[in-house]
Nucleic acid binder design. Structure first.
Lengths: 220, 220
DNA sequence: AAATTAATTTAGGCATACCTAAATTATATA
DNA sequence: TATATAATTTAGGTATGCCTAAATTAATTT
């Protein structure tokens, strides 16, 4: 059995790798809020377990075995987020922290039952895809809201899950995945977006907009 | 924050204390399947935290602060057992092991939501009382099934929760808490019990009967 | 090519929680 | 009372995972 820390490393490596970044010891340490030396030690350990490979130029790369575990943890996390939200009514800005600890201890049996209860869902409350039992991830193309222009409409696809203040803010505007909105105006010089959501007007700052991924963009 | 191990010690001390036994280092070690030296070390630690007192003659005693924590963990455990069984359909012989790890990581928020979902229940799937938020335990008087005589009827009050093979066995006879049955016959020389449950006849061995607590005993 | 800067690794420490084995302290029994 | 037995504690060792600080290696820049 892997330790919780090791699982967190694999999950983080997967996420960084997904972004297309080369996963250096330092980048990994920063992501995990840990000193580079600690990351270095864990990298050595995961390497001996054949869960990652490491080369100075390439950085860390997950092996197939490593990917499998990373995806399993991510699946646990996202399924838990959705379950806590749907079954227990935990607000979407609170599910991440809860899932962060439960993901390491939940059994396959309980997970399977939550999965069935939820009807084998494919995305979590923040719009992130939930890998299936075989680790297959359903990818969707989306673009950051910052690339939108005036009078374009779109659907919220995904938002960051780890900043609860941001999530509460988005929740106030009903900016959940699946919600449709139209850009009324984009202020010049990198200014904020004014949008229309179900008849309601809202102003969304640039920094916030960066964290909102959208799709189904249409000119109106 | 206490460690998981420390919480397990407090919980175990509470349970042993509840039985009226004097909680010696050795008894505690045996209960936790740990060497006496390990228990000795933890006792020292818990003592410095003022969660227990210790005297050679008396053994370990929980302080008020220690009791509070023990009851909180027990509440987590039993509420989780009931939730897993009711909300997710985990069979009653499987909930103990699941709860054993979750009890240490579940948040107060999630617990409160499970509690509300279940309608503020007072006993778990095995009939054990669930302490309320303030640590108040609703006590019920019950006697071991082994004290019953022929033609007495009774209601199952509580069964041990940690032996899954036993629980599966009892489940086969529908011997869940709340179930009524009548003793048809008690074989002589410490022999097995023949009982009637909803018209069905079943033979229950003495060793098994020891683990079944009953109440509402009536002569028929 | 040499020197500066950045990234990485090693070395040494801390805390938790477990273990075994030996020493100690109580409690019975003869 | 002295000895045997049982219970308990101490001492020393394991492993994990974190830390800081120093040493090393690689990549830039001059």
């Amino acid at each position: 059995m892997l330790t919780q820390a090791a699982e967190d490393y694999l999950k983080s490596i997967y996420k960084l790798q997904e972004k297309g970044e080369k996963v250096s010891t330092g980048a990994l340490a920063e992501y995990l809020d840990v000193k580079p030396a600690s990351a270095s030690g864990m990298i050595k350990k995961l390497k001996t377990m054949n869960l990652i490979t490491y080369e100075r130029s390439e950085g860390v790369t997950l092996t197939d075995a490593g990917s499998e575990i990373a995806l399993e943890i991510i699946r646990h996390h996202r399924l838990l987020e959705l379950y806590l939200n749907q079954a227990l009514g935990v607000p979407w800005d609170g599910v991440h922290d809860e899932a962060e600890v439960l993901e390491h201890v939940i059994s396959e049996e309980v997970e399977a039952r939550m999965d069935a209860y939820l009807g084998y869902p494919t995305s979590d409350p923040h719009g992130s895809p939930i890998p299936d039992k075989n680790g297959v991830v359903q990818q969707t193309e989306s673009i950051p809201m910052t690339e939108l222009h005036s009078s374009q409409s779109c659907v919220v696809a995904e938002v960051s899950d780890d900043d609860s203040a941001l999530l509460r803010h988005l929740g106030n505007f009903n900016l959940y995945p699946g919600t449709t909105f139209t850009v009324i105006d984009v202020a010049p010089f990198e200014g904020p977006f004014t949008i229309d959501i179900a008849g309601q007007e809202a102003v969304i700052g640039r920094e916030v907009a960066k964290h909102i991924m959208v799709n189904n963009v249409k000119d109106t």
